[in-house]
Amino acid sequence: MTTNTASITIAPPTLSLPALFLKFLRFGALAFGGPVAQIAMLRQALVEDERWIDKGRFNRLLAVLQVLPGPEAHELCVHLGMIARGRIGGLLAGLGFMLPGLVLMLVAGWAYVTWVAGNLTLAGALLGVQVAVLAIILRAVVRIGHHIVENALLGVIAAASLVLTLLGVPFWILLAAGGLTYAVSHRPLVACAILAVALALATAIHLLSGSGDSLHAVQGIPVTTFALFVAGLKGGLLTFGGAYTAIPYVRSDTVGRGWIGDGAFLDGIALAGVLPAPLVIFVTFVGYVTGGVSGALAITAGMFLPAFAFSLVLFERLEAIVENPALHRLLEGIAAAVVGIIAATFVQLAYATGLRVTAPLGALAIFAVALAVVWRIKGAWVTPALVAGGAFAGWALFT
């Protein structure tokens, strides 16, 4: 007996708006293990089991989202919610998916400020966690670079971005120069002109600022709810290539302004890695530590606003936009520059962490073991295990 595959319905079931919200709230509560695990969970539930859309459409949708800024898994939820119940459904699906992580991170931020920050008995354990997180970030840089840096020119853009970021060149110059250079790389004279303009602009900014350390050039700016919203919005608009790409921009606008230290910043990244949420939820922790509940909500709203906006506003046009070859090359060049900026941020974080280490050999051992584990082993349990192991090793070595 043959099965008539044409009779299989490929469409979302009829769901009320509350039922849709609760469905994606459940997905959010189970969203451990980072974007790969989260996307796999959504694929299994809504494509394989419930057949909301066919596999080909899902793959095309995922390809579109991967070249846009924002956490892919969250944007995927917004799109699937729209397929089921229109724009209201997309809004509810996105809110449901992010809500568990947001609530848990608010609780974590409160606990950190109330009991952990300034507790000398926990200082060694926290330092161990921060060293382990550095290994996780380095592995992410390599993994992102492997997928983005596909030829020599993209490698040159990434390397130049790394060096120039460490020299204090503003990120927006590097993103623009990287994207435009790669987009017109078939016209060498135009590419050279773009690089010359970028170099002249960077030199002028360097001379006017009087300092090459752009990270600390804006210290003294007061913490405001609006400033935290803008910091999150910048990160949300510039997360090309995955959630780790938000780290340098948020760090520049918070650590760079003296609102939070590098140690607490890394603690937030560590917590985000073990909670059921997109990794960018670390901004909620940063916002809470620097500005309380209002600051946490403001920076989180800024971070997730582009993810909602791109999906809700441009839903019908996204595939047509990314089919443009010139735009595709522009985005590839920007993404390569982002790889260099993340790598530079890793160097800056490692340097700041190293200044607080009292036992360098012990720190190197924690870093080496964590790097070996994250390099060779995959699974949702890896990051929580490294955080726990780093805390124990740090308590033993640095306390």
Results as ranks from 00 to 15, higher is better:
Phe398Ala: 04
Val230Cys: 04
Trp375Asp: 07
Arg57Thr: 12
Ser294Cys: 07
Gly261Ile: 04
Val274Met: 13
Gly263Ile: 06
Gly179Met: 02
Ala335Phe: 07
Asp253Val: 01
Val113Asp: 12
Tyr244Asn: 03
Thr239Lys: 00
Leu22Ala: 14
Leu61Phe: 11
Ile39Thr: 03
Ser211Cys: 07
Thr14Met: 11
Val255Tyr: 10
Val283Met: 04
Gln38Gly: 00
Phe24Ala: 07
Ile321Val: 11
Ala200Asn: 05
Pro276Asn: 01
Leu318Asn: 07
Glu72Ala: 05
Ala335Lys: 12
Leu164Gly: 02
Ala217Gly: 15
Gly90Gln: 04
Ile247Ala: 03
Ala309Ile: 12
Leu238Arg: 01
Phe27Ala: 03
Gly263Leu: 11
Phe97Glu: 00
Val230Phe: 05
Val190Phe: 10
Ile334Phe: 06
Ala296Ser: 12
Gly292His: 08
His186Lys: 08
Ala200Glu: 04
Gly70Phe: 01
Gly178Leu: 04
Thr181Val: 13
Val131Met: 09
Ala301Cys: 09
Ala29Thr: 15
Leu162Asn: 03
Ala326Cys: 08
Val223Phe: 10
Phe346His: 13
Leu166Thr: 00
Leu312Asp: 12
Arg143Ser: 14
Leu174Tyr: 09
Ser209Phe: 14
Ile342Glu: 03
Ala243Asn: 10
Val339Met: 03
Leu46Gln: 06
Leu314Asn: 09
Ile221Val: 15
Pro35Ile: 00
Leu201Ile: 06
Ile205Phe: 12
Val141Glu: 04
Val67His: 09
Thr3Tyr: 11
Ala380Trp: 07
His74Glu: 00
Thr239Ala: 14
Asn119Asp: 09
Ser211Val: 07
Ala40Cys: 11
Thr239Tyr: 05
Val223Glu: 07
Gly168Thr: 05
Ala227Ser: 15
